[in-house]
């Protein structure tokens, strides 16, 4: 058996690949669902119902989509330039931390000013956290996968320390949680009674901006060039190091904003379970989207639907909600396989 490169791949075929990958993953997971003793079609029906079946379900799914768009974009931007930022989780918490410090009373501005200021502050916090790894990589050749990954634990332990200490909410009944942000700092809800907040609009806007930057601006041109072929970019006189640093700052910044969006839009205050691994899931989201900024929106919605739907499915049918993790992972594997099959043809000999 061997692989042969295909020539002239039709566009439709390329767009079909992710759809087929998702279908294949549902089929592969059917066995697991059946094993838990629930009819497969019924379970999948519940999953679909739970994710998209009602206004409430849809709002929950979109609320879950929001942080995944941010972290997915953070990964997509960095990976496109071959900078392997695995630290979106830490950058998210860094953003959340600065918002907690500034937004719980220290800053007092009207809402129209407060929100932009906090968005910028959270972005700066995330960006600064990634500045160290990128400088270490450029000047000493330190592998950014290691540094960004380990920084996640450092930041989360720091948050834990602060939540038990100086940032602990005196009214929190002893729970390790921070004071809620002020009303001016909050991201407004989009509908009364639903958790869906305006962070989603911010995420969509950001995805659009990143896309435009990537295809229309000089910086985007440099970032793609560095990602595709760093040697040729350097040879052509592009400022490779500066582009790498810019990429890292943008990537870290986006992940930092995710922290603000979660604290000020979703939870209201900083807790240790602010992110159930959004940073890591963002990598999956970016890979599913093949690093396309607008694709990130779609893949984030898909991943969020699976998670939210699986929660509903486990509540009403007793299928463990861990199935969501399995499904998302399997769909990523299927995606990688289908991308391979789009580019190559298998020859049996």
């Amino acid at each position: 058996m061997r692989l042969e490169a295909r020539t002239n791949i039709p566009l439709g075929f390329m767009l079909l690949a992710p759809v087929l990958a998702v279908l294949a993953s549902f089929m592969l997971c059917a066995g697991l669902v059946a094993w838990s003793g629930v009819p497969v079609l019924e379970a999948y029906g519940l999953l679909l119902q739970g994710a998209l079946g009602s206004g409430f379900a849809l709002a929950e799914t979109l609320a879950r989509t929001t942080p995944l768009i941010f972290t997915g974009l953070a990964a997509a931007v960095a990976f496109k330039s071959r900078f392997w930022n695995i630290g979106a989780e830490g950058q998210l918490y860094a953003g959340a931390l600065i918002i907690t410090v500034l937004g719980t009373g220290m800053l007092d501005l009207p809402q129209e000013l407060m929100i932009p200021v906090l968005v910028i502050c959270s972005a700066v916090a995330g960006a600064l956290l990634l500045l160290g790894p990128v400088l270490l990589k450029l000047h000493f050749g330190v592998d950014e996968v290691v540094t960004t990954l380990l920084l996640n634990f450092i930041v989360i332990l720091l948050v834990s320390l602060l939540l038990e200490g100086p940032l602990k909410d005196p009214m929190g009944l002893g729970w390790p949680q921070a004071e809620p942000v002020t009303e001016a700092a909050e991201l407004p809800r989009l509908f009364r009674g639903l958790r869906l907040h305006s962070g989603l609009l911010l995420a969509l806007l950001l995805a659009f901006i990143i896309w435009i930057v990537s295809i229309r601006t000089t910086l985007g041109y440099e970032m793609r060039a560095v990602g595709f072929n760093q040697k040729a970019a350097r040879f052509a006189g592009m400022p490779v190091n500066r582009v790498m640093i810019m990429t890292a700052l943008i990537s870290g910044g986006i992940a930092g904003i995710a922290g603000y969006s979660e604290v000020a839009g979703m939870k209201g205050n900083l807790t240790l379970d602010l992110s159930p691994g959004f940073g890591y899931t963002g990598i999956v989201v970016a890979m599913l989207a093949q690093l396309h900024p607008l694709g990130v929106v779609i893949s984030a919605t898909f991943v969020a639907s699976v998670f939210v739907g699986a929660d509903a499915m486990s509540r009403s049918a007793g299928v463990p909600s861990y199935i969501a993790d399995v499904m998302v992972s399997v769909s990523l594997l299927c995606m990688l396989v289908s991308v391979l099959l789009v580019r190559f043809r298998i020859r049996w000999s």
């Binding site: 041109y221 072929n229 040729a232 040879f235 006189g237």
Partner: peptide, 29 residues
């Protein structure tokens, strides 16, 4: 070194002069 294989011919043709005013105004290509 010569070309960035995954980019188009047009993008490669300006890879050494893309910062000139005719190709970029305020960072907009």
């Amino acid at each position: 070194q010569g070309v960035i294989g995954d980019m188009s011919l047009a993008e490669n043709s300006i890879s050494e002069c893309y910062r000139e005013a005719q190709f970029s105004t305020f960072g907009w290509q």
